[in-house]
């Protein structure tokens, strides 16, 4: 999961202080692992260096946490590209996908697109596995089936999420 993209996405809805960013991240994505402030600081430095964010202003009182960040046009394009690129189908992918979906909802993008794109990518992998399975021996079949079942579980999650998008949007936007 890319913390950089996530923070960028959070900034897209408006400039925030570093501290606000950490709070928003923890609230929406960091259910079991809150972000260290140091991570925020280092990520922001990297994004600043790449010109994806800029410092919008510094509040009086000093301290790095008082810096206010805003996303640049290059940053928006970067988020856009990240969201549209399907993840390589692999295990434990959901947290990234979830982050993407929530960010899409927050930034009023079409979250269905993300899910459909991901589904297509999953199916592409499944096709390859199915093809290998049909041509291979029993061992190949068993190995491929294992992967296929996991992918299928992902796909089901994708479908379920797609069916619940409206509800999720209401919850995310309300917070």
């Amino acid at each position: 999961m890319s913390i950089g993209h996530t923070l960028l996405g959070l900034l897209e809805s408006g400039p925030r202080h570093g501290y606000d960013l950490k709070r928003a991240f923890d609230e929406k994505f960091g259910h079991d692992r809150p972000l260290h402030y140091g991570q925020v600081y280092s990520t922001m430095s990297r994004l600043l260096k790449h010109g994806l964010v800029e410092v919008d202003g510094i509040e009086a009182g000093g301290g790095p946490e008082r810096k206010r960040y805003a996303i640049t046009d290059a940053g928006v394009t970067d988020v856009e590209h990240w969201l549209a690129t399907p993840e390589k189908p692999e295990e434990y992918l959901q947290s990234t996908l979830y982050t993407k979906v929530v960010l899409a909802l927050l930034t009023h993008r079409d979250a269905t697109d993300i899910l459909d794109t991901q589904r297509a990518e999953h199916l592409r992998s499944m096709r390859i596995l199915t093809d290998r399975k049909r041509k291979g021996d029993l061992a190949d079949q068993l190995i491929c089936d294992h992967a296929l079942f996991h992918l299928e579980a992902d796909l089901r999650w994708l479908e379920l999420t797609a069916a619940r998008l409206d509800k999720l949007r209401a919850e995310v936007v309300a917070k």
Partner: peptide, 15 residues
């Protein structure tokens, strides 16, 4: 079913 659809060459989604 995804595993059935995996026998296809491509898919279209109806929603």
């Amino acid at each position: 079913e995804a595993r059935v659809a995996a026998y296809s060459d491509r898919e279209i989604v109806v929603r």
